[in-house]
Design a protein around this nucleic acid. Sequence first.
DNA 1: TCTGTCGAGATTGTATACACTTGAGCACGA
DNA 2: TCGTGCTCAAGTGTATACAATCTCGACAGA
Lengths: 225, 225
Amino acid sequence: MTAKIHPIKRDAPAAPRAELVEEQVRAAIHKGLYKPGERIRESQVAEWLGVSRTPVREALRRLESEGLLSFKSWRGVVVAELDRQQVIELYAMRAILEGAAAGLAARHIGEAELHVLERLLSRADGFLAQPDRLAEVNRTFHQAIHSAAHNRYLMETLNGLRNSLALLQGTTFSIAGRAESAQDEHRAILAAIKARDSDAAELAARRHIQAAERTRLAMLFAMDG
Amino acid sequence: MTAKIHPIKRDAPAAPRAELVEEQVRAAIHKGLYKPGERIRESQVAEWLGVSRTPVREALRRLESEGLLSFKSWRGVVVAELDRQQVIELYAMRAILEGAAAGLAARHIGEAELHVLERLLSRADGFLAQPDRLAEVNRTFHQAIHSAAHNRYLMETLNGLRNSLALLQGTTFSIAGRAESAQDEHRAILAAIKARDSDAAELAARRHIQAAERTRLAMLFAMDG
DNA sequence: TCTGTCGAGATTGTATACACTTGAGCACGA
DNA sequence: TCGTGCTCAAGTGTATACAATCTCGACAGA
């Protein structure tokens, strides 16, 4: 808040409608309101959010270049679907980038950021039985590591990967025992970062993602039958 | 009239104008027709390409989410500018990902792909004195490696990085001696891939990018004075 | 001369109108 | 009954019209 030097109150933050639409649609996809493979009609979204099709189209175009949607000429947009191969490739990318982020964090992290990581790690202990809450805390934990790597492109790319993986419903923490192992893996990552051991941090992070991948693929197998 | 049934020739490929605009503007930025920091007016682009502002806006929105443009509310778009820190971060990302791609290629590449790499490498020998042509061949060489890694997300991300780095004018091959060292480095990468030595390939690729970074930063220093 | 306020023009943001493509349903005939 | 072709509604792609906001310069007052 820039204080009240000017009596000018910005009641309308003048947030472009297109950005609003983008956030709402992304949130809807993450929440599973729109399911993978489902078609999205521009006019339906426009009516839902009370805007015209113009900002809707701009928002959808951007969501498409993020990989969340898929355009087909004259046939509209559909929520992207991930086949098994894509999931594998996404996790491979995550392993590379989470590893790199952890390695960089081990070198560049500051005391304050380290403290945040420790608090988040212990906070997660309280949610071992609540998959959704745990997933949220852990997401913050990972983001804190990404941020500690001090490379905005790395952070952005990891963000995009997370977005894409959000197309998969549910969380791996609902699998028995996964929450506890994940917590162990997180402890190993943090310990390596704290010890400023870049190689160990990278390795621990890669292992962590690979373990998550195994669980996720098992979940997919279970669904496919 | 749906006319003849068989020789379906789509005279008008029905290429959405927005895609056309996107390509044209991207090309213009790469060619330096639009320079970093320069403002782009929607109506000017619309007139230039003979379309209305609607597809132009969609194209610009997508180019922005690629990082090539930067939006400011009600102030239009400007071509993104890279400060020294951003260049460093971009090269750090490239080192990570080119390394990963080379490592994966060493494991997954097929004989045909290997052959393509060898041909590209020897083709480059003929362009050591033509920086622009050399840059083009070398870009193809790198893309072939990315492709051989068989991970579409890795390839896409590397593509995005290349796009962003295209904001820097000129090529590092115009620096005396750089073309020859780059060629040496490429040979080292290919040798490691051919030997199926994943670790060596990753290391060689990282070194290559780091060498390119040093040259690039020296060029920036020279420009800044 | 300097400072701050207030338009006018320019430019972006949004809505609406229109053109083009697609695909599903229906009528018709074999 | 099944195929075939046609019509037309639904929905996307594009253009145009209008509203909101910013920039920049002129001008009044100190």
